[in-house]
């Protein structure tokens, strides 16, 4: 059977086709000498040589800041208006398989009880085009958390690069099939050979089952090893902002008492204020407790509560950490 191909010279046409139908095209692009996911308008904007974008594309499904309601207080009373979410069709191009697998984690928390339509409506309108990895770096550890560049979970269309720079495409989900049909003019039948994938070596000494078992034992909770392993953490929260599965947020009112808006803003469990009570009491009063919380969220709470991936092994937190606190080193220590 012939493969379906996206020729590199047709990438621009695909972008035009998406934008022409009123959508937005999010792809890795160079900005301030870093490759980041952002909205692009033409093929030349795409970064060609990258391992993984610096930021996670979660910000296009769960924005850093968004208005959820607006209010005006006047002589006639209070006017309160909830924000309607009418997201644009969104194409994420150049996701990696690790990051695509994170969407089920976000969806789980935004739908487990109350439905947060600010997330679900955006995700429903998003098509994820994953480009399998042909290279990686020492921070990549997807194979250690049970994923690999061959994983298709969360991808709507799965693409493999060919030697000539084209892509072999495979529609994975119904949404992906509909996308390929909608933009059929851009794709061609043909046959090509895919470049070999970069499969990171599984880190020896990390055993997810052992980590889970150890974290589940409440007698290990106050283990002094947490303080030792994480004492260099400065609580900047960078790991949580680049993490594709971290989803904590704040709700604040902005403006004045007469006119303003209520916003959802990203927040981080690494901040002291995150759990600080008005009384001054703080249940997580030391940085190592906050670090432990994030680690346990990924490897114990999340997998047990939502049976989805808390950590996808993208390695972003390792790359951005200003004090080189490597989560895989803690995973190794916790595997003992």
């Amino acid at each position: 059977m012939a493969d379906k191909l996206l020729k590199k010279e047709n990438l621009g046409k695909l972008i035009e086709s998406v934008l022409g139908k009123g959508g937005r095209f999010i792809a890795p692009s160079t900005d301030a000498r870093q490759v980041v996911f952002k909205a692009v308008a033409k093929a030349e904007d795409l970064a060609s040589d990258y391992i993984l974008a610096r930021n996670s594309y979660k910000e296009f499904l769960f924005p850093q800041t968004e208005v959820v309601a607006e209010f005006t207080v006047g002589k006639d009373g209070v006017d309160l208006r909830g924000t309607d979410v009418n997201p644009k069709d969104t194409v994420i191009f150049g996701s990696r398989p690790c990051e695509a697998a994170s969407l089920s984690a976000l969806r789980a928390v935004f739908t487990w009880d109350f439905i947060d339509e600010f997330y679900t409506k955006r995700e429903d309108k998003t098509v994820v085009l994953t480009v399998a990895c042909t290279k990686g770096d020492e921070a990549c550890f997807c194979t250690t958390v049970g994923l690999s560049p061959e994983t298709k979970d969360g991808s709507d269309v799965y693409l493999k690069e060919t030697e000539s720079g084209d892509y072999i495409i495979e529609a994975v989900t119904d949404k992906g099939k509909a996308f390929v049909e909608k933009h059929a003019a851009v794709f061609e039948d043909g046959s090509a050979t895919a470049k070999p994938l970069f499969i990171p070596a599984k880190i020896e000494g990390i055993d997810l089952d052992k980590i889970k078992e150890r974290l589940a034992k409440t007698e290990n909770y106050a283990d002094p090893v947490w303080g030792e392993l994480t004492k260099k953490c400065i609580g900047c929260g960078a790991c949580t902002f680049v993490c594709p599965t971290c989803h904590c947020f704040d709700i604040t009112d902005e403006g004045t008492a007469f006119e303003g808006e209520r916003r959802k803003n990203w927040d981080s469990c690494q901040y002291e204020n995150f759990t600080l009570h008005a009384s001054g009491h703080n249940p997580r009063d030391f940085q190592h407790k906050r670090w432990r919380n994030r680690f346990m969220c990924k490897f114990n709470y999340y997998p047990n509560k939502f049976s989805s991936k808390g950590c996808v092994g993208c390695g972003r937190c390792i790359r951005v950490c200003p004090v080189r606190l490597d989560i895989t080193e803690v995973m190794e220590a916790m595997s003992k």
């Binding site: 989803h247 904590c248 704040d250 709700i251 927040d267 009570h277 047990n304």
Partner: peptide
């Protein structure tokens, strides 16, 4: 139990006690 809370609907993470959302 008392915890800092923001969303009230088990999403924002502020009130979490281990795996439990205090608000829900």
């Amino acid at each position: 139990l008392e915890r800092r809370m923001k969303c009230g609907v088990g999403k924002c993470g502020h009130c979490q006690i281990n795996s439990s959302y205090v608000c829900q």
